[in-house]
Design a protein around this nucleic acid. Structure first.
Lengths: 188, 188
DNA sequence: GCCAGTTCTGACCGATCGGTCAGATAGGAT
DNA sequence: ATCCTATCTGACCGATCGGTCAGAACTGGC
């Protein structure tokens, strides 16, 4: 059975997300997989290649969402579609997103992280142009960073894991509330 | 002039927050300070001691906020006070909070991080008991993680830094909106 | 049995890590 | 000038890092 490569990818992703890319040694990944460090380097030519295999698909998925978002004007319907797409993306790739958010700025010289950072920056700029006020711009950041943080932190802090569909519905509500501008808001 | 110790503290905090505690070498801190690695270890007996000096005050401040929060029932007034206190805490210690959020789970064996993690967990449990629904619990996490992320990410992504008081007002608005339960919400 | 290809391993390499130590350098008080 | 103390430095140590390489162990096809 040659599931070793896929096993290594999953193990590496989990360790990279929790202990950090720099903080995770190939030796530890090998131990968790029940292999030797040399075997890990047999399946993946280098630590960086392993990182690319671990988070590359998530970067691609995020790029696809961004392309779909940028093709037309941002109508209310499209905004709703984007939010659902984005929350589902967060749920499916929560570990990878956690890595983009936390370790992106510190790993600027790793190619796959450069791609991820460029995508996050593009997303931020897109919403910065559509947002009118400083507060609206910050709402986007809080929604993105907060949702990503919550998905990983809940696993660390919550005793019993929350059901996925309940989490999904709650996240869609919260992000919608944060991104949808409150029309009648004359207090500011 | 003996400002070296304080200079080192500030430099270390910045590097620890951006490149990570593990990802920051004493050699780099020494270079940024214009000193040798040995001189850094003269002022701070070890890398861990330096970390304690860098983030200890923020941990203390957060502990104080928590103690002030836990003395009585959570009235609407007290909730408002807490939000303002908390946002000001985030603004003053944004780098340290960023470290708690991002690197807390991966540095469980470092004493000062254990203290910080315990405080974050206490805060989460406090709001978990007061929150009635899963969504309310997630609102707290999104607010905390999102605000902390936004304060550091804005410095990385935004070209011109936002004015402090504007950021403060916006954050108070957003966190208030996230934490204050919407009373008339029969849709859920 | 034999062979070819895949998978795996231990030994080894140079670099870097945090930390130790003996000693150089400086400055102020006497 | 002398002494004490604070500050700083380069050389060195053991451990760990990512990565290389020759070869062992296992596999299915013939």
């Amino acid at each position: 059975m040659s599931t070793s490569a896929e096993d290594l990818r999953a193990i590496a992703l989990g360790e990279f997300a929790t202990a950090g890319y720099i903080g995770t040694s190939l030796h530890r990944i090998a131990d968790l997989a029940g292999l030797s460090k040399s075997s890990v380097l047999y399946h993946y030519a280098s630590k960086e290649v392993l990182l690319g295999a671990a988070i590359g698909p998530a970067v691609d998925a995020m790029g696809a969402i961004l392309e779909r978002l940028a093709v037309g004007p941002l109508t209310a319907v499209r905004r709703r579609e984007f939010i659902v797409e984005f929350v589902d993306f967060l749920l499916e790739h929560r570990l990878e997103v956690h890595m983009f958010i936390n370790q992106g700025p510190s790993l600027v010289d790793v190619p796959v992280f450069d791609r991820a950072n460029a995508l996050v920056r593009r997303l931020a700029e897109y919403f910065a142009t559509t947002a009118t006020s400083t507060e609206d711009r910050m709402r986007f950041g809080v929604a993105l960073g907060g949702a990503a943080y919550m998905l990983v932190a809940s696993q660390s802090f919550e005793l019993e894991p929350l059901p996925v569909d309940e989490t999904r519905a709650a996240l869609i509500n919260i992000v919608t509330e944060l991104l949808a501008p409150v029309d009648a808001n004359p207090t500011r």
